[in-house]
Design a protein around this nucleic acid. Structure first.
Lengths: 323, 323
DNA sequence: AGACAGAATAGATGATTATCTATGCTGCGT
DNA sequence: ACGCAGCATAGATAATCATCTATTCTGTCT
């Protein structure tokens, strides 16, 4: 009773034989010759160690064991058909799972895409990982996730990127701040005397700000490090100092906070999807990117719209083709 | 997505890989080398047309498609295990089906064995075919059934036989018949003046009777052919004539019928099981024969007991061994 | 008895599988 | 930087499989 070499094919053949009740007919049906089928049947019989059919009335009828095997084969073939279905669903990106990792600032913007996507693809499970830039970089190194969202991406050596949304950085102050009501934009230099509340030095916002100031030959004066955007907002509102923040993180009309009109601002950065070239994207992840490309217009305000995802998809597909 | 060559073995290997989460460990578990398993895995991957695993943290973790395949493999392997179980039940003769054909006279005696057997093996289906000798011979020629019960067997050229019960043939007459109360057995010659009611000329009883008379240089006088034993009983009771009948078909105390004490009677014939040498017996049929051998004592009255079934079983087994 | 259809057997062959050994590559821990 | 554990690749080989064609056997129909 050695099933080792029992193949799907063999089962197909056997099922055909029992169905048609004839070796020759099965052969015709399967576009094989009669001896071929005879031999397969015999091989199966040997494997099972039991006669499966008897010749009767111009054909072949199963023994009890044969009937039992027939049932088993049907079940197994059915199971594989199921699997095939699942597989094609997976391939189509309708089912399955993928993971996406966000640097924490992005958690305010990504749900706009993920929400509708989940709605449209209820069978896809998404694992979202949120953390600070450090943590995300570590995950990226290890390639723990399928898609990463950064605004200031790490090396793109082995990765592809696509901007999908503008992320303007502005300086905010308490609502009573004098510059808030200036008739013309004020210069940044005029603000550097004040204290700035900043995220930790690894953060992208911080790096961009430093770079931007350096370009102008300036640097920060008094600073204060605060670990979360939330805390910074509160701090600014209560007069602790100024801060450079993504416009997204200050919903319009946030009480006690105001955007200061500063020359040269906003700094234009972008949210982008980053994916590894090495890693083969799950179909579900691809499906998400396709969805993003198509539906971005409906999910974000027009002033923040910036859709490069199409290019990314093109690159992925050509990568796949020539792998 | 070509599953043709997907074997049971391949699934076993795959399952081991996913279970252990490691190619090498799976290899050890299966007593294979690591490259072997690697290659099988790759083959499977090619067949499915989709990556199934990714390397991670010193091992291998399934992709979504891999997980799906894993489930499928488990189900399939489980289904085969079931089949194996069924098969061994079949082999043990606990389950399954066989058919047995009786010449109609035997229908009075066989239930004594079949009843208890079915009791003991409720999972075995038995098809019982009953008919006259002609019909049974035709079935025997075509080998329609697994076991035949004859009292006067046809050629044993390609068959094996075992007596399992005595079948004494006696002459019966109406209860008022003079010979019934004779002090000593009467001679058959003295009865031949009377009319005899007989079964059709092909019947075994008839053949035996003719032979028996011939041995003694005698032959029948007036006869009357009647198609059923039942009708013969009625006829004899109502004084139409005498008859040679199996003792079994006249239950003790059958009203109006009496066994006549005749010299040289009863003719000793036997019920026997006949099976073909060509045909492989279903396990269930074997199981029935074994049952018969063991339980005959409990199923028939001691005076009719005659158990040669053991010898038959021996022959079958040695036939099987050297086929 | 002969024709015919269906099944088995035999023999051939190219493809594929199932294994191995030896070797190369890679990431992780010290 | 080294070594180890784990995976992949390459090359070899015997077994097996999947097919075919040609032929034989067997039972059924005419």
């Amino acid at each position: 009773m050695n099933f080792r070499h029992l193949t799907y094919r063999l089962m197909q053949v056997y099922v055909a034989v029992i169905r048609t009740g004839s070796v020759s007919q099965a052969a015709r049906q399967l576009h094989l010759t009669q001896p071929t089928v005879s031999q397969q049947l015999r091989r199966l019989q040997d494997a099972v160690g039991e006669p499966l059919v008897e010749m009767r009335q111009g054909g072949v009828v199963p023994t009890e064991a044969g009937r039992e095997l027939y049932r088993a084969c049907q079940d197994v073939i059915g199971r594989f058909d199921d699997f095939r279905d699942h597989l094609s669903a997976l391939r189509g990106g309708e089912r399955g799972r993928f993971s996406i990792a966000l640097v924490s600032t992005a958690q305010y913007v990504l749900p706009r895409l993920l929400g509708p996507f989940s709605q449209a693809h209820p069978q896809v499970e998404v694992d979202v990982h949120i953390g600070n830039r450090q943590q995300m970089l570590a995950r990226f190194e290890r390639q723990d996730d399928d898609i990463y969202v950064f605004s200031h991406p790490p090396s793109l050596e082995h990765a592809l990127a696509a901007r999908f949304m503008r992320n303007p950085l502005v300086i905010v102050g308490p609502s009573g701040h004098p510059a808030a009501h200036a008739t013309a934009p004020v210069s940044i230099a005029s603000l550097l005397g004040e204290r700035f509340l900043l995220r930790e030095s690894g953060s992208a916002t911080r790096m961009l700000f430093d770079g931007w100031l350096q370009e102008r030959g300036l640097s920060l004066g008094a600073t204060m490090h605060i670990a979360s955007n939330e805390a910074i907002r509160v701090g600014v509102a209560s007069g602790l100092g100024l801060a450079l923040l993504s416009e997204h993180v200050l919903p319009k009309g946030y009480p006690g906070l105001v955007k200061l009109p500063v020359e040269g601002l906003p700094i234009q950065s972008h949210w982008q999807f980053i994916i590894s070239r090495e890693r083969r994207l799950p179909h579900a992840a691809l499906s998400f990117l396709r969805f993003a490309e198509q539906n971005l217009e409906d999910c974000v305000e027009p002033e923040w719209l910036h859709n490069d995802v199409g290019g990314l998809l093109g690159q992925i597909l050509s990568d796949e083709a020539g792998n």
